[in-house]
Each structure stands twice: as C-alpha cells, then as structure tokens.
Measured scan of single mutants.
Amino acid sequence: ETGKELVLALYDYQEKSPREVTMKKGDILTLLNSTNKDWWKVEVNDRQGFVPAAYVKKL
C-alpha cells in the first residue's frame, strides 16, 4: 500500500509485555508511529505493538 513506511528489523526482539511484538532480524515491518524516540509502534502479521527504536531502521 502506498503511504506506508517500512522498517527493517536489525536484531531479534522477544516481546516482554502484551503491548510489544516479537520480530526476527531481517523482518520488514510496517511503521505506524515513530514519535517516541525509544519505542516505535509497528504492525507485523496483523498484530500491532511496540519495538525498541534502536532495533529497527527506516527503509
């Protein structure tokens, strides 16, 4: 879809709370919100949640 910003997972991340999502290094995720410098909201496999901003980079 146009207008979607994507990020690349630089590291594996295992969710530690229900508000977070698990990702694997190399995953491409849809970026939903990056206003917080530490935690970015992403969508992966129809799930939305937060990942550490340092673990992903914008494509």
Results as ranks from 00 to 15, higher is better:
residue 13 Y to R: 02
residue 26 G to F: 05
residue 24 K to D: 04
residue 52 P to T: 02
residue 20 E to T: 08
residue 48 Q to V: 14
residue 12 D to N: 08
residue 46 D to W: 06
residue 42 V to L: 04
residue 11 Y to A: 11
residue 11 Y to G: 06
residue 41 K to Q: 12
residue 18 P to T: 10
residue 4 K to D: 07
residue 47 R to K: 11
residue 29 L to N: 01
residue 11 Y to E: 10
residue 41 K to M: 15
residue 38 D to H: 15
residue 37 K to L: 10
residue 59 L to D: 03
residue 14 Q to C: 11
residue 33 N to W: 07
residue 53 A to E: 03
residue 41 K to T: 08
residue 42 V to W: 00
residue 19 R to D: 12
residue 49 G to E: 01
residue 37 K to V: 11
residue 47 R to H: 08
residue 22 T to H: 04
residue 15 E to R: 12
residue 6 L to A: 06
residue 53 A to R: 13
residue 11 Y to Q: 13
residue 8 L to F: 08
residue 54 A to S: 15
residue 11 Y to W: 10
residue 22 T to D: 04
residue 55 Y to W: 07
residue 25 K to I: 06
residue 42 V to Y: 01
residue 35 T to L: 09
residue 36 N to L: 09
residue 23 M to N: 00
residue 30 T to L: 14
residue 39 W to L: 03
residue 27 D to W: 11
residue 22 T to Y: 03
residue 49 G to S: 02
residue 37 K to Q: 11
residue 9 A to L: 02
residue 16 K to T: 13
residue 39 W to S: 02
residue 13 Y to G: 01
residue 37 K to S: 12
residue 29 L to C: 10
residue 34 S to V: 07
residue 33 N to D: 15
residue 18 P to Q: 09
residue 20 E to Y: 05
residue 38 D to P: 02
residue 43 E to T: 07
residue 42 V to A: 01
residue 6 L to M: 09
residue 25 K to Q: 09
residue 19 R to W: 15
residue 26 G to P: 00
residue 24 K to C: 11
residue 55 Y to S: 13
residue 35 T to A: 12
residue 18 P to M: 11
residue 21 V to M: 12
residue 12 D to E: 05
residue 28 I to Y: 06
residue 31 L to H: 01
residue 51 V to Q: 00
residue 25 K to Y: 05
residue 58 K to D: 05
residue 10 L to Q: 04
residue 50 F to G: 01
residue 41 K to I: 14
residue 58 K to F: 10
residue 44 V to W: 08
residue 52 P to K: 03
residue 1 E to F: 04
residue 20 E to K: 04
residue 24 K to Y: 10
residue 19 R to Q: 12
residue 26 G to Y: 05
residue 46 D to C: 13
residue 41 K to P: 01
residue 8 L to T: 07
residue 3 G to F: 13
residue 57 K to I: 15
residue 55 Y to R: 06
residue 5 E to P: 10
residue 13 Y to P: 01
residue 42 V to M: 02
residue 10 L to N: 03
residue 44 V to A: 15
residue 28 I to P: 02
residue 32 L to P: 00
residue 22 T to M: 04
residue 5 E to V: 15
residue 23 M to V: 10
residue 23 M to H: 00
residue 58 K to Q: 09
residue 56 V to W: 01
residue 36 N to I: 05
residue 38 D to K: 12
residue 2 T to N: 14
residue 32 L to S: 03
residue 52 P to I: 02
residue 16 K to S: 10
residue 59 L to F: 09
residue 4 K to T: 11
residue 4 K to A: 12
residue 54 A to D: 12
residue 25 K to R: 10
residue 35 T to K: 13
residue 57 K to M: 14
residue 7 V to R: 01
residue 50 F to V: 07
residue 44 V to D: 11
residue 36 N to G: 10
residue 8 L to W: 07
residue 36 N to W: 07
residue 11 Y to K: 13
residue 13 Y to L: 02
residue 36 N to Q: 09
residue 6 L to P: 04
residue 17 S to G: 13
residue 15 E to T: 08
residue 43 E to Y: 06
residue 42 V to C: 05
residue 1 E to I: 13
residue 16 K to L: 09
residue 43 E to L: 08
residue 18 P to I: 09
residue 4 K to F: 12
residue 34 S to H: 08
residue 19 R to S: 13
residue 13 Y to N: 00
residue 35 T to S: 14
residue 23 M to F: 09
residue 21 V to T: 06
residue 20 E to C: 07
residue 4 K to P: 13
residue 25 K to V: 07
residue 22 T to I: 03
residue 54 A to R: 15
residue 53 A to V: 05
residue 31 L to Y: 02
residue 37 K to P: 14
residue 55 Y to N: 07
residue 39 W to A: 02
residue 47 R to L: 07
residue 53 A to P: 06
residue 6 L to I: 08
residue 3 G to Q: 15
residue 1 E to R: 10
residue 46 D to S: 10
residue 48 Q to L: 07
residue 31 L to A: 02
residue 27 D to F: 04
residue 43 E to D: 07
residue 24 K to V: 10
residue 53 A to Q: 06
residue 37 K to R: 11
residue 30 T to N: 08
residue 50 F to P: 00
residue 24 K to Q: 10
residue 45 N to A: 13
residue 40 W to V: 06
residue 19 R to L: 13
residue 54 A to N: 13
residue 1 E to N: 14
residue 14 Q to S: 12
residue 45 N to I: 12
residue 33 N to A: 10
residue 35 T to V: 09
residue 26 G to N: 06
residue 45 N to V: 12
residue 33 N to T: 08
residue 37 K to D: 11
residue 3 G to I: 13
residue 13 Y to D: 00
residue 11 Y to P: 00
residue 17 S to D: 11
residue 15 E to K: 13
residue 33 N to H: 07
residue 53 A to T: 06
residue 14 Q to A: 12
residue 22 T to N: 06
residue 51 V to N: 01
residue 41 K to A: 08
residue 6 L to Q: 09
residue 32 L to R: 04
residue 4 K to H: 13
residue 41 K to R: 11
residue 16 K to N: 10
residue 54 A to G: 11
residue 9 A to H: 01
residue 37 K to C: 10
residue 19 R to F: 13
residue 6 L to D: 04
residue 12 D to A: 06
residue 49 G to P: 01
residue 48 Q to E: 10
residue 15 E to P: 14
residue 24 K to I: 08
residue 35 T to P: 04
residue 32 L to K: 04
residue 15 E to S: 15
residue 1 E to V: 13
residue 15 E to C: 13
residue 12 D to S: 08
residue 35 T to E: 15
residue 26 G to H: 05
residue 1 E to P: 14
residue 21 V to G: 02
residue 47 R to C: 06
residue 30 T to G: 09
residue 49 G to L: 05
residue 6 L to R: 10
residue 39 W to Q: 03
residue 37 K to F: 07
residue 16 K to M: 12
residue 45 N to K: 14
residue 4 K to V: 13
residue 31 L to S: 01
residue 21 V to N: 03
residue 56 V to Y: 01
residue 23 M to P: 00
residue 15 E to A: 15
residue 43 E to V: 10
residue 34 S to I: 06
residue 33 N to V: 08
residue 49 G to R: 02
residue 21 V to S: 02
residue 26 G to S: 03
residue 37 K to M: 10
residue 58 K to T: 09
residue 2 T to I: 14
residue 19 R to K: 11
residue 36 N to D: 15
residue 27 D to M: 15
residue 15 E to W: 05
residue 31 L to E: 00
residue 3 G to S: 12
residue 2 T to F: 12
residue 5 E to H: 12
residue 47 R to S: 06
residue 47 R to G: 05
residue 18 P to F: 08
residue 1 E to S: 15
residue 55 Y to M: 13
residue 1 E to W: 03
residue 59 L to V: 11
residue 38 D to Q: 12
residue 40 W to F: 08
residue 4 K to G: 10
residue 38 D to I: 14
residue 23 M to K: 01
residue 14 Q to E: 15
residue 57 K to A: 12
residue 46 D to H: 11
residue 13 Y to C: 02
residue 50 F to S: 03
residue 28 I to S: 03
residue 12 D to Q: 03
residue 26 G to E: 02
residue 51 V to H: 00
residue 52 P to E: 02
residue 46 D to A: 11
residue 51 V to A: 03
residue 32 L to A: 03
residue 33 N to G: 07
residue 44 V to L: 15
residue 13 Y to M: 01
residue 58 K to C: 11
residue 5 E to S: 11
residue 8 L to P: 00
residue 3 G to W: 12
residue 51 V to I: 09
residue 18 P to Y: 08
residue 53 A to S: 13
residue 43 E to A: 11
residue 9 A to N: 01
residue 1 E to Q: 14
residue 50 F to R: 03
residue 48 Q to P: 05
residue 2 T to S: 14
residue 53 A to M: 04
residue 58 K to V: 13
residue 32 L to F: 04
residue 21 V to H: 03
residue 50 F to Y: 15
residue 8 L to A: 06
residue 28 I to G: 00
residue 8 L to Q: 12
residue 40 W to G: 00
residue 50 F to M: 08
residue 9 A to K: 01
residue 59 L to A: 05
residue 43 E to H: 06
residue 51 V to M: 01
residue 42 V to Q: 00
residue 15 E to L: 06
residue 12 D to V: 02
residue 18 P to N: 11
residue 47 R to A: 06
residue 1 E to M: 09
residue 20 E to G: 12
residue 43 E to K: 10
residue 34 S to Y: 07
residue 46 D to L: 09
residue 28 I to Q: 05
residue 56 V to T: 04
residue 58 K to S: 09
residue 52 P to R: 03
residue 58 K to P: 10
residue 9 A to R: 00
residue 7 V to Y: 09
residue 33 N to K: 07
residue 6 L to Y: 15
residue 4 K to Q: 11
residue 9 A to F: 01
residue 25 K to A: 13
residue 11 Y to I: 08
residue 33 N to L: 08
residue 28 I to V: 10
residue 56 V to G: 02
residue 31 L to I: 05
residue 7 V to D: 00
residue 7 V to P: 00
residue 38 D to A: 11
residue 6 L to C: 12
residue 47 R to E: 05
residue 42 V to I: 07
residue 8 L to E: 12
residue 47 R to V: 07
residue 56 V to A: 03
residue 38 D to T: 13
residue 9 A to V: 10
residue 28 I to E: 03
residue 19 R to T: 12
residue 55 Y to I: 09
residue 47 R to M: 07
residue 14 Q to N: 14
residue 40 W to K: 01
residue 2 T to H: 14
residue 37 K to H: 12
residue 58 K to Y: 10
residue 17 S to K: 07
residue 1 E to L: 08
residue 35 T to Y: 09
residue 33 N to I: 08
residue 47 R to T: 07
residue 21 V to P: 01
residue 52 P to V: 02
residue 33 N to C: 11
residue 31 L to F: 02
residue 6 L to T: 08
residue 26 G to Q: 02
residue 4 K to I: 13
residue 18 P to S: 11
residue 18 P to K: 09
residue 32 L to Y: 04
residue 50 F to I: 07
residue 41 K to S: 07
residue 22 T to S: 15
